[in-house]
Design a protein around this nucleic acid. Structure first.
Length: 249
DNA sequence: AACCAGGACGTGA
DNA sequence: TCACGTCATGGT
């Protein structure tokens, strides 16, 4: 029984430009975000950019990553590790793996479970995540160069809607919009969706109103996260969100 | 010193 | 379907 996309749909026609207005405001405010961050683009020498003008793993304006299967796998690991966890913690875990020369599917598969757990401990939930990383490593190995389907990703234990979309969007360059807790808070606070709107509804809201374009999807999601970190930490801050007034007419 | 972070899964209504 | 408990470290 078709459930109520009512809220989103009824507003869509009337408010269509809003979603573009938000994007413009965020891009003007923060500039390109350069997601997905990669550890190998970190400047370990202390003084700045390597080749692409990357900043702490981010590569603003460059939507060509990942360039290698290694980077692809790193993004996949990061997508899993960042579940309900801050990126800073994930970086520590990824760097631990990298220093052990174990940030590859083969290495992850061959590591002792206890060793893997120890390496990713900073990212939390290390028991589950260690097991699930191994599952992902095996899946990725068997994948070869084939392009995965969304349903296929969702069937993997530990991969839910957000992780699947993150993997598709950033590791496989497929235009699949990512909805996270921040996105939900923002659209809810702006009155564009109900607080308890389903993942698929919010995802559809963006996808139906944006050009099906990789750079747009990547940038939009990254911008929402950056914005939310500033204005959506505590409920009391929601009212300070500049978008509340910037999207009025 | 609670509360939270770029969620997902298992369980029982 | 859906609400709720669980998983866990480190920052604020």
């Amino acid at each position: 029984m078709k459930k109520s996309v009512q809220n989103l749909n009824s507003r869509r026609t009337f408010n269509e430009p809003v979603i573009h207005k938000i994007y413009g405001f965020l891009l003007d405010s923060y500039g390109p975000q350069g997601w997905w961050p990669l550890t190998e683009l970190h400047d370990s020498s202390g003084t700045n950019p390597t080749k692409t003008g990357s900043i702490r793993g981010y590569h603003p304006g460059d939507y060509t990553y990942p360039h290698t299967e290694s980077q692809q796998f790193e993004i996949i690991c990061g997508a899993l590790l960042t579940q309900n966890t801050s990126w800073q913690q994930v970086e520590r875990a990824l760097i631990n793996l990298k220093q052990m020369d174990s940030l590859s599917p083969e290495a992850v598969l061959s590591l002792e479970p206890e060793t893997l757990k120890e390496a990713i401990k900073p990212a939390g939930y290390y028991n589950q995540k260690a097991a699930r990383l191994k599952i992902l490593a095996e899946w990725f190995t068997d994948l070869k160069s084939r392009m995965p389907e969304r349903e296929e990703l969702l069937s993997i234990k530990g991969v839910g809607p957000e992780t699947a979309d993150s993997i598709l969007l950033y590791a496989f360059k497929q235009p699949s919009f990512v909805v996270d807790a921040y996105t939900r808070r923002i659209v809810s606070n702006l009155g564009l969706a109900d607080e308890k709107a389903k993942y698929s509804e919010i995802k559809a809201f963006f996808e139906e109103n944006l050009p099906k374009d990789l750079a747009t999807y990547q940038e939009y999601h990254a911008l929402l996260v950056e914005h939310a970190k500033r204005y959506y930490q505590k409920k009391i801050n929601y009212s300070q969100c500049p978008l509340l007034r910037s999207i009025q007419d």
